[in-house]
Write a protein that binds this DNA or RNA. Sequence first.
DNA 1: CTGTTAGCGCCTTCAC
DNA 2: GTGAAGGCGCTAACAG
Lengths: 352, 352
Amino acid sequence: MNNQQDGGPLTLRDVAAAAGVSLATADRVVNGRPGVSEKTASKVNEAVQRLGFRPLAAAAELARARSWRFGVVLPRGSNRFMLDIADHIRAQADWFRARRIAVEIIETDVFDADRLAAELAGLPGRFDGVAVVALDHPRIRVAIDDLVDAGVAVVTLVSDSPSSRRRHYVGIDNIAAGRTAGSLVGRFLGRPRGDDPGGSIGIVTGSGSLRDHAERRFGFGQVMTEEYPHLTRLVPVEGRDDPERNRALVRRMIADTPDLVAIYNTGEGSVGIGEALAEAGLARRILCVGHELTPATRRMLLDGTFAALVAQDPGHEVRSMARVLHALVSGQEIIAAQEHIRVEVILRDNLP
Amino acid sequence: MNNQQDGGPLTLRDVAAAAGVSLATADRVVNGRPGVSEKTASKVNEAVQRLGFRPLAAAAELARARSWRFGVVLPRGSNRFMLDIADHIRAQADWFRARRIAVEIIETDVFDADRLAAELAGLPGRFDGVAVVALDHPRIRVAIDDLVDAGVAVVTLVSDSPSSRRRHYVGIDNIAAGRTAGSLVGRFLGRPRGDDPGGSIGIVTGSGSLRDHAERRFGFGQVMTEEYPHLTRLVPVEGRDDPERNRALVRRMIADTPDLVAIYNTGEGSVGIGEALAEAGLARRILCVGHELTPATRRMLLDGTFAALVAQDPGHEVRSMARVLHALVSGQEIIAAQEHIRVEVILRDNLP
DNA sequence: CTGTTAGCGCCTTCAC
DNA sequence: GTGAAGGCGCTAACAG
């Protein structure tokens, strides 16, 4: 790491001197601004290379003296996970302030494409950067592309709109998340032995049309088909992430499925599943795997109702969103490796 | 988040004006420096509260114009995981440079307490902050405390010395990591059914005296005893994290243990275990759980030799170390929640 | 196309 | 105990 012959830290001024140009010219080259001849530019670049110059971020930030407005579009009301996202944004207030970033959380009906599209249409001019919990819907794609065309830096958050021209997606690979859930269920149930008939697996999902849930079901199904063909998957039931609905659905599932051995919930509202099982005296006897760490799922992990959770860290996601938007608006590079959001597996024993 | 009535961003100058003092005095109060009377201080503090002032990090950093020297003491030669740590430190070079931090990696024989203690004794004066992969040994405790007394900010990395006065430990809870491994092994093997005799579990460990490995064995044993008493744990064998030794040990283990059903490796060198199993035609038939994601363990996860890994993210650890040391030397607060290093579970399906 | 110059917001001598 | 003034390294007007 001893990569600089310390004769006092290297500044742009040193580079300018070494290249025989003025500070301003060196600055133009380093920041890729126009108005410099080919040869002067290469002289400066050569000096940058030779001296190993890197601009001091703090000084650049101070001198730029620009402030930014970011908007974060989240589903209104909503579930614990989204509330956590909002809380983490507020918890980052100092980070934002220290970078002259004003953040506004905009709550809207994300599940209604028209409403969401209309909301997005009103954003240019109000914000320099926008993070949105998106829908994979043609109207949303257009709305996002319009935002991008209006010069707004756009990233999707948690739920992607991959066909849009958003600059970045902050969230997990939901197919991988579903596969992970599938492997956990399959392995936890164990290999069939002797005359073991396998059994049925119930699938509770939020809605058939949400991309993230669909991807999870898809990944789950992949693993089940490939690796655990002796297990039967029931037709997914839709509880719209609502504990009450989930409870009713699971009650019926229990009644209708004598060989039920496991339940996979692709979304929120896991607590309803736990309640239905407890009522039937089946808690801990039927294997449950769900998503996201919340007070409710934490409790059910600790009491054994749920065996494992597949999760994404909302804190990481918010910090990543902040870094990425800031990098995008201020023209810095984003370090992909650092911004990868992991699919986490949480058992009772590695609860954070 | 609309917490500032924007009339242009708030600066220390505004606070000084509001409190009726000079910039310098306001600065002294805000940074808790001496030489201000009680009443002036409270006037300033009141203004800070009322206006909701937060200093702009970039300006502070620039004005401080101080540079720091950090040293990171790592085990010499060493395994893939430690090499990854070193690589991540080099990959953070820009981050460090942008904060005027010069980092030096110091390789030493961490496993020899005297050698390590001597190395640490030579550090004061050379560094403002030191991160060390420590040993839980009285001599190391003293060496760390001496460093702290010499005014050096010290954090332990990956392996702790909890009785020392190090300011922070950057690493995972190894008991939790061992428990997690235990739950994975227990659940993957499945509940005993009918006349199922359970089986034996081999334990491969680095050395009996390393604290992290001992803690992992302890956590693993806790879960086994509590939850899976039908499984027999063999006496741990010590392979010093060396693939060759591990291979020989596992060969013998296979020969001596007809009912071997699983192997848990608390440390490195998992590849030797995989090789021994492959030779015996037992790969994928004996359940393996190990630690840390490396090219070798990744391969064995993909081919099914290992069912799961319990891991810590070296990238997170290096970034956390950097943030914490920087915060310590520059007198900033550290956000505990953000610095918690997670015990990760990696399956084939959620490989990053 | 290139150079000069005045700050960005805070910290740190140095006087008072 | 308090204040005035210069500068940290870079950027962005403005001249030339």
